[in-house]
Amino acid sequence: MNIVSTILLICGLLFFTGGAVGIIRMPDFYSRLHPAGKLDTMGILMTMTAVALYNLHDFSIGTVLSSLKIILIVAFLFITSPTATHAIVDAGVRAGLGPWTKEETKEENDLAT
């Protein structure tokens, strides 16, 4: 059980790292949202699953309830994270920020329309 939860924890930390590096490296704010909102969600899922498994080590009512609460956190984040991402995107669209595109694809789009 310890090994499984350690592996899950490390996978989750890897996803978190991807999210942080992605926030730094991406060129504009729309594409920054891709790693920010969702690699974090996956990292939360992984780390919380690891913690819940480790928590069930000595089995009793209290630990089961704690693990259920952890699952509740994960479910809550799975509902709210897309909503927050969508709210930020919506604010950007209403402010009139255009998405960053590559030059040549932009020209192609202009020709196509």
């Binding site: 978190f16 920054r32 920010a36 990292g43 780390t47 919380m48 480790y54 604010a91």
Partner: peptide, 24 residues
């Protein structure tokens, strides 16, 4: 400002995980 908001959101979700780890 929206970039800052993204950073704040990312830090917040990491803090949630960090709190549970501190509890452990």
């Amino acid at each position: 400002i929206l970039d800052r908001l993204i950073g704040v959101n990312a830090i917040g979700s990491k803090t949630t995980a960090l709190l549970v780890l501190i509890g452990l």
